[in-house]
Design a protein around this nucleic acid. Sequence first.
DNA 1: CTGTTAGCGCCTTCAC
DNA 2: GTGAAGGCGCTAACAG
Lengths: 323, 323
Amino acid sequence: MSLGAVSRVLSGDKTFVVRDETRKKILAAAQRLNFSPSPLARGLRTSRTFTIGAVIPDLDNPIHAQILKGAEGAAAARGYSMLIAHRFKGATESSLYERLLLQTRVDGLIVATMHDEHAGVATLAELGRPFVLVNRKAADVQHFVVCDDQGGSKKAVEYLYSKGHRTIAHLAGELHRYNAICRLNGYKDGLAACGLDYDPNLVVEGGYSQDEGSQAMLKMLTAGQPLPTAIFVGSLLSAAGAIKTLRAEGLSVPNDISVIAFNDGSIAEVLSPPLTTVRVPLAQMGQIASDTLIDAIEGRDTPVQMTISETTIIERESVATIT
Amino acid sequence: MSLGAVSRVLSGDKTFVVRDETRKKILAAAQRLNFSPSPLARGLRTSRTFTIGAVIPDLDNPIHAQILKGAEGAAAARGYSMLIAHRFKGATESSLYERLLLQTRVDGLIVATMHDEHAGVATLAELGRPFVLVNRKAADVQHFVVCDDQGGSKKAVEYLYSKGHRTIAHLAGELHRYNAICRLNGYKDGLAACGLDYDPNLVVEGGYSQDEGSQAMLKMLTAGQPLPTAIFVGSLLSAAGAIKTLRAEGLSVPNDISVIAFNDGSIAEVLSPPLTTVRVPLAQMGQIASDTLIDAIEGRDTPVQMTISETTIIERESVATIT
DNA sequence: CTGTTAGCGCCTTCAC
DNA sequence: GTGAAGGCGCTAACAG
């Protein structure tokens, strides 16, 4: 029983054959001495850290929190730890990447942030370690996992249509962003699928925060257009804002105007009325992201460009049936 | 210019004297070659990782997210990375600690979880590395940072009193938990300060989730007691649940019953009516936790047992004035 | 199948 | 002020 043998047994080398007796003795001793190999030394030797980094825009945003939660769970299940870095003020995107992995603390990266697509992906690629984008995709990127923003949005419109709505507006996000574009396209798809005409006057660009939702709603209300009977809002938070404005203007949801939002979360339940949403499996996305990242780290390098198509309408009370 | 000199300059050894010229040359070369010392090798040598671990119950809970956000920011500012571990199903508390630091990946721990106080603290202490509790405290623990749950709660009651309320109820959390106990005590303090009698019938124990808030509210409503004019609810989420029940029972907030909750968050703004809350500087708590942890890691070992007393009533629309 | 050995990259003491 | 050398704990390669 030698040092080498111990190392091999403890690191679970399958190709290594020992007498069962020896193996047991080693394991027992390790247990007794409360010994576990130092990840630092191991990392130094193998240049693997069994740690993945997650770069997220805002910890405080429930959407990202859900993704992260899924990702951390999956990573832990495979023996990886998770290092996080969020964008705090003053941090540039590449400084984040660098902080995490130029310094080789991390075997790969999960990136849920990506404001400047070009610069970001370029920096990432240069670093020469695997990374996977979540909830975003970009040209020339090996791995990403996104949800079916477009399909889900289409479904939302079709749902509205099935409830009798024929004039359906859209409160969009910032239309240079991936998600916002997809959702707008899905909105158009839905319209087309229902045989409705697309009317640019019925979409107003805003953003995904509550305030931006409020303002976008106000803009639509004061545009002097005929009012829609239903609105598909691009995000949960902005839907909350929109509803607020609607109520402030004396309009009732869903009696005067129905509202459905993309993305679900606990906020939806507590709004009044409780908000009907299209839910997307965010935690699962995080989980898959972790798994593909770890696969890539461990050598399986088939590109995973996955869009998770599961989208579910969560019916609550913000959509009325028109007869 | 020697290897040793380079090491010393790069690690910012203040006691090391070099010609400015040499120092500059070193720095320039490091820059040019894109060199930065390997944290792994450094860690192996010094047994420091410049990483702190955070153990949190649920990433998805805005309260914890805010704390974590503050903590990560402060850690980053001092050159530390942050490893997270949340309790996913099947993880025992000590398995989390072990995963993070028995394996010495981490110089210390921020712990925002602590369900079994005794076992938890004991395990932690045995590990022999610094740790700080956030939003929790326990006997025999060197470092913790909490907010003034009790004072804030008292303030809430006094606020209600100042609006004319004289029958004030409390929807409490699980009364074996630190936070819930403090808030109940603060409620009693407030009553006393206002010259109001404490009536056990006016407090119902529940929990901090939305559902538990709903149920607790229902319990109070159906208890056959005379109804209070105002309720101090122990958490944001449970307040949302309570309001839901109130509305379902045909009671108007704030016309029939006023509501104020402990802890603020974006949900408060979107509720209807927008919820009046007592806000506590959660991110700042996280930040202070990081700072004291890092201080402890770096040798300043004066116990920091801080309670941040800042509490602010955020007035929205869920409290009526009674005349 | 087992034991030995040479570094992984760094910091730190020590003699210069 | 500088340079050399030892070793942190581990793994992989190789010789037995």
